[in-house]
């Protein structure tokens, strides 16, 4: 791949009931090796993937919520959360993992990766993508 494309991953399902959330995260991490312009959107029940305080010990399965914190290391730092989906679930950004990245252009200052956007704003962002993958 020579030219850089805009890739967006839409995360639309809750984390442990189905395998979609983890599969999406794996694809994002693998895809990061191709150095494309990657962004993530969390929509609908996908919001639940980012909830703080997940603990799967009693389920006996892997808690992959800490892995979202690694996204900054993989240069994935545009993480959009749809406001309408947050509101519908009675959540605010304070309920979500505080995801950050280090901005190489500003002496590695730590910045928030999560941007809460309205459906109308997100629609525009999606429309500008070259590739949209829904999970």
């Amino acid at each position: 791949m020579s030219e850089t494309k805009n890739f967006m991953y839409l995360n639309r399902r809750a984390p442990y009931g189905t395998v979609y959330a983890w599969e999406s995260l794996e694809v994002v991490l693998i895809g990061a090796a191709f150095e494309q312009n990657v962004s993530l959107a969390f929509i609908g029940d996908g919001i639940y993937q980012l909830l703080k305080g997940q603990n799967t010990t009693e389920l006996g399965i892997k808690n992959f919520s800490p892995t979202y914190n690694a996204l900054g290391d993989y240069d994935v730092n545009k993480i959009y959360v749809e406001k309408e989906s947050l509101d519908a679930r009675g959540l605010t950004v304070a309920d979500l993992l505080p995801l950050v990245y280090e901005d190489a252009d500003e002496d590695y200052a730590e910045k928030d990766s999560i941007r809460v956007v309205t459906a109308a704003e997100l629609a525009e962002i999606i429309d500008q993508q070259d590739v949209v993958l829904s999970f």
Partner: peptide, 15 residues
């Protein structure tokens, strides 16, 4: 332990 994944080589090198 922190992130529940083994980092990609590029990420490992940087870290």
């Amino acid at each position: 332990e922190e992130y529940q994944i083994a980092p990609a080589v590029r990420v490992l090198t940087k870290a």
